[in-house]
Design a protein around this nucleic acid. Structure first.
Ligand SMILES: [Mn+2]
Ligand SMILES: [Mn+2]
Ligand SMILES: [Zn+2]
Ligand SMILES: [Zn+2]
Lengths: 143, 143
DNA sequence: CTAATGTTTAGAATTATTCTAATATTAGAA
DNA sequence: TTCTAATATTAGAATAATTCTAAACATTAG
């Protein structure tokens, strides 16, 4: 999403396209990492004429989550990370580096497979609306 | 695990079987819920002759995680929950009630299936040591 | 006994986040 | 263009979860 679309998206969702919100959104859309509010605050603090407050970063992130432009990701204890990738996808955590990688849900694990799987649980019937997998391990570079 | 085994388990793992640790461990082993440190503190505070401090609850939980008798579970932002179920298993979150249910990993989603799945990701080779699925949805009672 | 070691404790400190209430900005109406 | 009402931003206080500190306790080996 480019600048103009972003601006329009905000307007369409009753969100004033303030410099702070635009800067935060543009920053998130530009990175594949999953930064925390603090990391975002540090990263953008010199991209605005006047310093942005941490409260505004938190406020803006909440607003951006609400209009569906970003998502929260929970990986470590007591830390919320933010993700520009709003599609249903999974995460691979590199246990050596701590890096969080997006894993796209290809067809192999389908909704049907998942629901079948849960049907094996004898006690209750589960109606799954969503699911998220966190993989832990290491990454071997392709040769 | 009963009282005697618990005591022995602690000793075998160089952990003094203090009343505080035993009480916390027994409490966790007795519940299928996934309580927070605070909830545990409240729940056991009248099961000991003298009041237990919250610091001790945190210290003990850390020790119990270290010796592998319990696990941490991350579901909500900024909250750590504890789980007596140390087997590899998944969690179903009832989005109506917030309840967290254990889902045993039956064979349908095997390690091989998972690794195959990740092999479809063209960019990198993943060596998965572990994975955890969080399901969201509702539960229909069996008729 | 006594020393050494490990444990618990209250309360202070820290970290992440939310709240408050004053000020500033925005966007539409006049 | 102003004016105005609604929103947004801000600094700093407050809160929630957790960790740290250093003193008091308990247990055990000598
Ligand atoms: Mn954070
Ligand atoms: Mn907690
Ligand atoms: Zn992601
Ligand atoms: Zn569990």
């Amino acid at each position: 999403m480019d600048n103009l679309n972003l601006q329009q998206y905000f307007i369409d969702h009753n969100l004033k396209p303030t410099p702070q919100r635009l800067t935060i959104a543009k920053f998130l859309l530009s990175t594949d990492t999953h930064p925390t509010a603090e990391e975002i605050h540090k990263a953008i603090s010199n991209e605005l004429p006047t310093p942005i407050s941490l409260a505004t970063v938190y406020n803006s992130l909440e607003a951006l989550v609400k209009v569906g432009i970003i998502k929260e990701v929970l990986t470590e204890p007591n830390k919320v990370r933010y993700d520009k990738n709003i599609t249903n996808h999974h995460h691979f955590i590199n246990t050596k580096t701590g890096e969080i990688l997006d894993i796209e849900p290809y067809e192999l694990i389908s909704k049907e497979l998942i629901e079948n799987y849960l049907l094996k649980n004898p006690k209750q019937k589960f109606k799954v609306s969503n699911y998220h997998i966190t993989f832990y391990g290491q990454v071997e570079e392709n040769s």
